[in-house]
């Protein structure tokens, strides 16, 4: 095996396991976010849901990569979650601020 082939195989293995481990860590953070969303009041729940959309979006984007699982349709869902999730959080926070939301 040439040095380039060795390095390529090592890179593929390392990238796969790194992305997999990162997704597991993101899932754990997502569980914490669900706990915050379920136990807190309105704005705390909004914050928890915002984090949950973030970790879900990043994990979906990672599984859509051809280097990993190549689930193509997950990419669009991930972009929607990341962008619309952030904008929705800002809009709802603004609504909670001005409204009578206690």
């Amino acid at each position: 095996m040439s040095e380039t082939a060795f390095l390529s195989n090592l890179a593929d293995t390392a990238f796969f396991w790194a992305a997999f481990a990162f997704m597991v860590a993101a899932t754990a953070a997502g569980l914490g976010a669900i706990r915050v969303a379920l136990k807190g009041e309105a704005i705390t729940s909004l914050m928890g849901v915002s984090v949950f959309t973030t970790v879900t979006g990043v994990s979906l984007y990672l599984i859509s990569l051809p280097e990993l699982f190549n689930v193509g349709f997950a990419r669009d869902t991930a972009i929607a979650l990341l962008v619309v999730g952030s904008i929705g959080t800002i809009i709802f926070a603004r609504l909670f601020r001005t409204g009578d939301s206690s």
Partner: peptide, 15 residues
């Protein structure tokens, strides 16, 4: 070779 090394670096960032 450069691509493989960059991918190893990306794995390091993920770790």
């Amino acid at each position: 070779t450069a691509l493989a090394l960059m991918k190893i670096g990306a794995a390091g960032v993920l770790f």
